[in-house]
Amino acid sequence: NQASVVANQLIPINTALTLVAMRSEVVTPVGIPAEDIPRLVSMQVNRAVPLGTTLMPDMVKGYA
């Protein structure tokens, strides 16, 4: 099972992602792969992401 990126805190809309804001977890459905965490740092989310939410490619500006 592949680990996905999960919000480690509430991430407000247009907030730049940080290492502290993300964690890796095996979840269903699978979201952005955990190995992409370094690439996600400083990218912005295009919606509010609640704690525990799996990050999907369409939630991160410039990711997809």
Rank of each mutant, 00 (worst) to 15 (best):
E25G: 08
S24V: 12
K61Y: 13
A64V: 14
P50G: 08
V5N: 00
V30S: 13
A21M: 15
T18S: 12
A21S: 14
A16L: 12
N8K: 07
V27S: 03
I37T: 05
N46T: 13
N1K: 09
P50M: 13
P38Q: 11
M59Q: 04
Y63D: 05
I11W: 02
V30K: 10
Q9I: 12
P33W: 08
L10V: 11
A48T: 15
V60E: 04
V26W: 11
T54H: 01
M43D: 04
S4Y: 01
D36F: 10
A34Y: 06
P12C: 06
V41N: 04
V60I: 14
A21D: 13
I37A: 05
R23S: 07
I37P: 01
S24W: 09
T15F: 13
A3F: 11
T54E: 03
T15W: 11
V30Y: 11
G31E: 01
N46E: 07
Y63N: 05
V26H: 11
P12N: 08
Q44Y: 15
K61M: 13
R47W: 06
R39N: 10
P57H: 07
N14M: 10
N1A: 15
G31V: 01
I32E: 02
R23P: 04
A48I: 14
V49H: 02
L51N: 12
A21W: 05
V41G: 04
V30F: 11
P29H: 04
V20W: 13
V45G: 04
T53R: 09
G62S: 08
V5Y: 00
G62Y: 08
P29I: 05
E35D: 14
A64Q: 14
L10Q: 12
M22C: 05
V49M: 01
A3G: 09
T15C: 10
L40C: 04
E35G: 12
N8F: 01
L40Y: 03
M56V: 07
P50F: 09
V27H: 02
D36T: 07
T18N: 06
S4H: 02
M43W: 06
E25F: 06
V30P: 14
P38R: 09
Q2R: 08
A16W: 12
T53A: 13
R23L: 05
M56C: 06
N14V: 04
I13W: 08
I37N: 02
R47F: 06
I32S: 02
P33T: 07
Q9P: 03
V30R: 08
R47Y: 07
V27Y: 02
N1I: 15
A64T: 15
P12I: 05
S42H: 15
A48C: 13
E35V: 13
I32Q: 02
P12D: 07
A3D: 06
V5G: 03
S42P: 00
V49S: 02
I13F: 10
N1V: 15
V41E: 05
D36M: 11
N1R: 06
A21R: 08
M22P: 02
A16Y: 15
L10T: 13
Q9M: 14
N14H: 13
V30W: 09
I13M: 12
M59E: 02
P57Q: 07
V27P: 01
R39C: 14
V41C: 06
N8D: 09
Q44D: 05
T28V: 13
E35A: 13
R47M: 11
L19S: 07
Y63G: 05
L10W: 11
V41Y: 00
M22V: 06
A7L: 05
A48R: 14
T28M: 11
E25D: 11
N14A: 07
V27Q: 02
P12T: 08
A34H: 06
D58H: 12
L10G: 09
N8E: 04
N46Q: 09
M56S: 06
Q2A: 12
S24H: 08
I32D: 02
L17S: 01
I32F: 02
D36P: 00
I32R: 01
I11A: 02
V41R: 02
T18D: 06
I11D: 01
Q2N: 15
A3L: 11
L51V: 14
S4F: 00
P12V: 06
A34D: 06
P33G: 04
M59F: 10
I37R: 06
N14D: 14
Y63W: 13
I37Y: 02
P57G: 07
T54R: 00
A21K: 09
I11E: 03
N8M: 06
G52N: 14
L19E: 09
N1Q: 15
T28P: 02
M22E: 04
M43P: 03
I13G: 09
I13E: 15
A48N: 15
G31L: 02
L55M: 07
G52K: 00
L19K: 08
T54Q: 02
L55W: 00
L40D: 04
N8T: 12
Y63R: 04
A16G: 08
T28Y: 12
V60H: 04
V60C: 05
E35M: 10
A3N: 09
P33A: 07
P38A: 11
P57T: 04
P33H: 11
D36K: 10
D36A: 12
A34E: 08
V5D: 01
Y63C: 05
P38H: 11
V5R: 01
P33M: 06
V45W: 00
L51D: 12
L51P: 15
L10A: 14
L19I: 08
L19M: 13
A21V: 12
K61I: 14
T54W: 00
G31Q: 01
P57E: 06
T18A: 07
Y63F: 09
V27T: 13
